[in-house]
Structure formats: structure tokens, C-alpha cells
Amino acid sequence: MNRLTGPRWWLRDAWLMAGRNSRRIVRAPGLLLMYALIQPVVFILLFAYVFGGAIKVPGGDYVQALIPAVFVQMILFSSIGAVAVGLAEDMSRGVMDRFRSLPMTRSSVLLGRIASEVLRSAITLAVMLGCGLLVGFRFHGSPGLIAAGFGLLLAFGFAFSWVAAWIGLMARSGEAAQGLGLVWVLPFTFVSSAFVPTATMPGPVRAFADHSPVTAMIDTLRAWFSGRDAGDAALVTAVWTLALTAVFMTLAVLRLRRTSS
């Protein structure tokens, strides 16, 4: 028989998987509400009204600095939680075995899931944006730069989704994936320029924070959303995004091919 592979079938399979997953997102409203709506809103309110008074930032306006940071953190939380847990559950329930026994392109299983998570991230972003505007956040940049900021942020989330996919395929259960996914992303997002200036951190921590892709992403958004030039940060973010995608896409696909349990 003909091998029905090639880019067209790869995309078609990914489209089918994304359709399946989007239905799951809509039909499990509890998860959508929790990850996409409640958690980001709680974070914004918490930082804006509880910590905001105590933390001084250069330039003075904490909300302006806070909102881009919460955007980045929430995009990472939601993509890592959903992708890692979802894939681990498919693995442990035998659903993945069924997909893998079909003559489909196996990497589409991952691509489809991640594509639908980008959709979920876009919903999360919209909610956070609304909430941010309510607590006083304002754009000052050009519409082009603002759009570019959101585009880069979604691409950044896409890249980390591949990290999450790899973790999800390694984990033995949904619970394990949840733990493995969050245990590094929590310090990873906090050890950055997200909530306090990196200059206040002790030497090694500061070095890590200054070179973290999270810092580069946040600095880029802060610049672009207030109409400033982001300097190297935007380029650094783009390079991280491409590199993480390439490396972890490869790792995840290899893992899916050889996985045996």
C-alpha cells in the first residue's frame, strides 16, 4: 500500500488531534476555568494589591511591570500543566497505544495537542489582558509592536509546550506529570525579572535570572508594550524560542517513537 505520509497527512493528522483536544478543553470547563481564567486573575490581583505596595521598581509603576510578567508566567503554567498532564494521561490510559497502532504520523499526536494548547493560551491571554486593564495597566507602544509582543509570547509558550510534552511522555501518570512539570517551572519563572529586579538577588541567582529566557521574554514585553526598543532581549527571546522548540520537539518525538510502557 501507499505510505500516506508527507506534510499534507502530517498536518491533517495534527488537525484531527487538535480538534479532539479542543473538544476536550471546551468540555472540561473546570480545567479551562482553573488554568485559563481563575489562576491568572488571582495572580494579577495578588501581585497588584498585596505585594505591589512593597515592591519598588525602576520607573515606579509596578502594575506596568507586573502585567507582562504575569502574562509570561501564566502562559508557561498553563501550557506545561495542560500538555504534560494530558499526554501522561493518554499514555497511562492506553489512548496513546491506540494512536500508535494506527498508520498515522506519530508526531502529529504531539503537534495537535500543542496547537490546541496555543488556542487555550490565547484565551488565557485575553482574560489576563482584560483583568490587567482593570487594575490600571495601559499600552503605550505602537499597535504593531504590541501585536508582535503577543505573537512572540504565544511562540514562547509553544516552545515550552514541547518541553512539557517531553516531560509528559516521561511521566508514569498524570499526577507525576503535574509534579514534574511544576517543580522546575515555579522557580524558573520566579528566578527572573518577573516580580523583583534581578539586581536585588545574590550573585549566582542573579546570574541565572539575568540569563533566563523568562527574563528576556518579560523584558521584551515590557519594552514593546510601553513603546521602547527591547534591544537584545527580543533577539535573545527569539533564539531561545527556536532552540527550545528544535531540541525538545526532537526529544519528545524520539521518546514517543521508542516508548515502551
Partner: peptide, 10 residues
């Protein structure tokens, strides 16, 4: 397979 591989939400 040994585990029922149906998607509960579909």
C-alpha cells in the same frame, strides 16, 4: 488493549 482506550469527553 488491556485498558479501555476511549476518550471519556468525546
Amino acid at each position: 488493549g488491556q485498558f479501555t482506550a476511549v476518550d471519556d469527553l468525546l
